[in-house]
């Protein structure tokens, strides 16, 4: 009796899983084997392996890597500093606050800021560097992406640092380790789970960015996300769009597998 009841609880979750996870995946894979006229074909996968899509894939990975590294370099010290401040919750809230603003609005704001006559260039001129083109460059693309993704990097690292017992650091210091050694040998290894989770949370969505590539990079950066959007909305070649999506998902799965699931070793 008891057991029967327990299985009932599973129904909403199982239904959710089937309807919104498994079924769409099956459709996506199915669609990827159809050509533009709805005939069975492997041509989409052959096309993904042509230089143009391989190049696009390489760009996507390169920029996602840059965005993740920059987020980590800024995010880790930020998270570390956050754990040391007195009004943690307030600072954390300030970090999360921009996430409540619509993404499109934030990106549009950068159009104004980075424009030829925008604030950023006014500042560069004032400090004597001189105006330069910021919009539609690799730099601005990575900058804006990092700005968007940084909370996703900081939060898991912050949590990992919070869970770190302070006594471990005291012990390291008592045993004569310098500040840097303590960080390198104790703090960083123990927060690696947070770093992994943060990197995954940034790298994976960064792989398929599309709106920012048009608005901030003026289509000078073309990622797989742009291609998927094009194929679904403009070309109506759903098969090709689905194929790129499947390839991206496989790539993401490989990344998650290689970096290990973030939580395993660290927390307990």
């Amino acid at each position: 009796m008891e057991r029967a009841w327990r299985n009932w609880y599973l129904i909403p979750y199982a239904a959710w899983l089937v309807l919104f996870v498994i079924a769409p995946l099956v459709f996506l894979v199915y669609e990827s084997f159809l050509d533009i006229d709805g005939q069975w074909t492997l041509a989409n996968y052959e096309k993904v392996l042509t230089p143009i899509y391989l190049k696009m894939m390489a760009y996507s990975f390169w920029y996602a890597l840059l965005i993740t590294l920059a987020s980590l370099l800024i995010g880790y010290p930020t998270a570390y500093w956050l754990t040391k401040t007195r009004h943690k919750q307030l600072w954390l809230l300030l970090l999360i606050l921009p996430m409540w603003v619509n993404l499109l609005l934030k990106v549009y704001a950068f159009l104004g800021l980075f424009g030829t006559y925008g604030l950023a260039n006014a500042f560069l001129q004032a400090i004597g560097v001189g105006a330069r083109q910021l919009l539609f460059t690799d730099f601005s693309f990575v900058f804006v992406s990092v700005y968007i993704f940084i909370p996703f990097m900081v939060l898991p690292i912050f949590n990992a640092l919070e869970e770190l017992p302070p006594s471990l650091i005291d012990a390291a210091r008592d045993l004569g380790a310098s500040g840097w050694t303590t960080f390198r040998r104790v703090v960083f290894p123990l927060t690696l789970s947070g770093v992994k989770a943060g990197c995954q949370a940034v790298f994976i969505p960064a792989l398929s960015l599309f709106m920012i590539t048009r608005l901030i990079a003026g289509n000078r950066v073309i990622t797989l996300g742009t291609a998927i959007e094009q194929h679904f909305l403009v070309t109506q070649d759903w098969g090709m769009g689905a194929t790129i999506a499947v390839v991206l998902m496989i790539a993401m799965a490989v990344i998650v597998f290689l970096t290990g699931s973030g939580r395993k070793e660290g927390s307990r």
């Binding site: 159009l111 424009g115 030829t116 006559y117 048009r214 608005l215 289509n219 000078r220």
Partner: peptide, 17 residues
């Protein structure tokens, strides 16, 4: 070509970008 953009082309041209 400086950029290939969507609707925001209006804003960018009016701002002499």
């Amino acid at each position: 070509v400086k950029a290939i953009v969507g609707d925001e082309i209006k804003l960018l041209l009016a701002n002499e970008e």
